[in-house]
Structures are given as C-alpha cells and as structure tokens.
Design a binder for these strands. Structure first.
Lengths: 236, 236
DNA sequence: CAGTGGTCTAGACCACTAT
DNA sequence: TAGTGGTCTAGACCACTGG
C-alpha cells in the first residue's frame, strides 16, 4: 500500500474511533511527519486526499480540522459505487427482476460508446433499504468489458466483483438527476401511486482509462430519498 | 497568482478554445514542464486540480485526457456558489421578496452554529432561469460575518460580494437533497400545482476557517431541475 | 523497452493566524 | 513573532501502457 494512502486510512480510522466532531483539531504537519517518519509532501498528500473526501479541512496558519456534518440517514451522492459503500451502514438488499444478454437500446449504446450490435448485460433490480423500496434500477454493462455476470453476483455488490473478481480499475462516473412524476409501472414496483414524485438518476461509470462500462437508470422512492453532497473550495 | 493555478487556468482555457472532446489527449508531463518552465510537481499539482474539477483524467503509462460529458442544460450540483458560476451560461435572474435583519429560527441557528438571539440577514427570493421559475429560496446569513446586505447585492451575486466586497474566503459547503410534494404556497410562487413534485435543497456554506455563514433552503421547479454530479476515483 | 504518469524525499522559502 | 500550513524545486525511483 502506498504511504500516503496508508496514512490517510490511519487518520480516518483515528477520527472515527475517537468520534471527533466538526472543528476538532488534528496534530500539526510537523508532528505527523515525525510520527509517520515521512516527508512533508507525503503528509500533505494524505491530507489533500482526506480533504477531497470531505473528511478534513486545512487552515493555513492555524491547523487541520475535522469536517463532519451532523445529519444521519443521508446517502452520499458521491461515495457511490452504485451506492454500495455507504450502503453497508444502510442494510441494502436487492431483488433481481431480469438478467440477460441483449443488444443495447440506442440510448444505452450512446452512453456506453458502443455500436448497436454489440452485446450488453441487462440487469433490472428493485433495491430495498431497511426492507423499504429504495429504487427501481436498470443497468447496461458493456459485455466486452464485463464479460460475465450471474444472479449471485448482481444480488451482491456488482462493483466489488468488477474490481476484485475481474481485476478492473473503476475510474470515475457522471451522474444526471431529474425530478418527475412516477409512471404506473414504476409506482407498482415502488409501492407508490402514479403521479407521485420521483427522483430519476442516470449514471455512466468509466474505467480509469476512460472507457464507459456501465450505464444505469434508477427511479428512487421519494420517501426514502435523502441525499447529500459535500462541495470543496475549488468549486466555490 | 500561484503557478499551478495559472497553469490549470491556461490548460482549461486551451481545452475550451479548442473545443476538445472527451478522450482527447493533452501534451505529456515532460512537454508541459518545459513549456511552462516549472518543475514536475507543479505540473502534477495543476493536473490534480483539473482532475478534482472533473476536467481531465490521467492514465498512468498512457497520458492525460479530457473529461467532458455530452449533455447540455444540466446544472452542476458542485460548481455552485448558490449556483452562480455556471449560471452565467444559464441567464439566471432573481426577484427579491423579502430582505431584513431578524433573529434566526431554531433550525437556522443550529445550522449556522449561533445563538437564538444573534442577528441574521434573512433573504427570500424567486430565481428564474431563461425567464422560467427555477426555485424559491430562503437564506439566513450570520450577520456577525456578513455585516451588510442590500437589495442591489442580493439581486446580483451574493457570493461574489462576499469574496470581493467583504474580502472573505469561502471554503466548503454541505448540501442535503430531498424529493417531495409542493405545498400550496410553494406551488403559487413556482407557477405549479399543490402536490406536484419538488426538489428540496438545503445548503450550509462555510468560510475556509470552517465557520458557517449561510444556511439556505431552496425549493426547485421540477420541470427545470436537471442536475449533474461528477464523481472521482477515490469515491468509487 | 521506450514513453508516460505516480510516489517520495529534503529542503528553501512564502503566507497566514494567533497571541 | 512563533507556529503552522502552502508552494515550489530537482531529482531518484517506481508502475503501468502500448507498440
């Protein structure tokens, strides 16, 4: 493991275990340098990583502080992997409705950057949070990248299988959000009524080399839809 | 201006002016080093910044590539500053409904981390996008930080005034999203009907030193609500 | 195996904060 | 003005990609 990643993990663990709250101060750069026996740049890199993740903020001339909001029960729009990572805190389960190999729709082909006669894995699932319907999701996986899927895999964490099982490196994702009214079919799956509000989410996931491998469309139950996003300074 | 910021700006401008598309390659690190006459770390820092912003992605052993999605008309949930920055592309206007100094609600006091008897500026606005109602927004500004506001300022960009006019450094924000049904009052302001879907957004903005200065609650017109978020590798 | 990006170091110097 | 974080350099060495 890389030094700066290791240090970042240690610091994150430290914050977690000591239940540090927003605004609490971490040791100074100098101290961390000597404690971890690395150069200043390496510590800086660790802290930049934690800052990107929204876990700390650094104030020149003052110190390094914990960043942590107070609200519980919100799902991060960023720490995502089809949301699995923080779903461990959330008891998420899935019911698979369809799984097969087929040709992509025009829309899927466009978003996956493939031809209409290439194969994709098509997955349709209902996902539950604490036993309540969270969303109805359709996914298209580029079969020339994701070469094999089965029922067991997609009931668990697909993204974990992609990294560990297939040895692929997941890079980045683009996510598009709309608010709209439920259709009759969607309402049925979610246990709501036609015309009720929905959050509609499309995501395109890419490997580190930029190739899109997953195009997903999800319709979220508005009653369970509490999301949050952390924004950093360079955006403001 | 810092070197790495300057270089990042130049590269961003270059990508913009040459209308480079997703996947197009930028010059190698070595080339950039010699062109800009800086050390490798400085170039790396520039590129890391652009990567954070979702403008490029780097592939070890291969090169530096432009990252850019294809969809138009989406508002970034991150490049926000109350959304002003990318609103320049969007012709946003505001109508001020209320502006006064008052005591905060419990909710506002909690989120701004102040006492109930401290003063806040209260601002209520309807915001329009291309002349259509985008959202109804209520904001609470900590008056001990934002010492003065008037109608002219809040019709323009509040955040610009805070940085330029007041010389304050805006640091980071936490944003919480819900989907729900419009109340009668909200529907009236947005020109929709009671019970229609809404996106409800709460944001807490902080200075670089971690002090919250603005708590805002916005109700978005679902017909104009198209948002996107870019996720980077360290989250996946 | 050549080219390209990533990690890490040691150290100089700068900019801001708190007291 | 002491303490603390931020920028920048020059260079060594590592890890991955692609022909």
């Amino acid at each position: 493991m890389l030094k700066y990643q290791h240090i970042a993990n240690e610091l994150e663990k430290y914050i977690e275990e000591h239940a540090l709250q927003q605004g609490e101060k971490l040791p100074s750069l100098d101290l961390l340098m000597t404690q971890f026996e690395v150069s200043k740049s390496t510590i800086t890199k660790s802290l930049d990583l934690l800052e990107k993740k929204g876990i700390v903020f650094q104030v020149r001339g003052s110190g390094i502080f914990v960043r942590r909001h107070k609200r519980k029960g919100y799902i991060s729009l960023l720490s995502n992997q089809g949301f699995k990572k923080n779903l461990e805190d959330f008891h998420i389960t899935s019911e698979v409705i369809e799984l097969d190999v087929r040709k992509p729709t025009k829309e899927a082909a466009l978003n996956l950057n493939i031809e209409l006669d290439n194969d994709v894995y098509y997955v349709k699932r209902v996902r539950y949070i604490h036993g309540l319907t969270l969303c109805l999701e359709e996914s298209y996986f580029n079969k020339s990248i994701i070469t094999y899927l089965n029922n067991e895999i997609i009931s668990e964490s697909i993204f974990n299988y992609i990294s560990e099982g297939l040895g692929l490196n997941i890079g980045f994702a683009d996510t598009f959000l709309h608010v709209n009214k439920l259709t009759e079919e969607e309402a049925k799956y979610l246990g709501l009524r036609k015309g009720d509000p929905k959050l509609y989410v499309e995501s395109i996931f890419h490997l580190t080399n930029g190739q899109p491998f997953d195009f997903s469309k999800g319709t979220y139950n508005y009653e369970q839809s509490q999301f949050f996003v952390q924004t950093n300074s360079h955006f403001l």
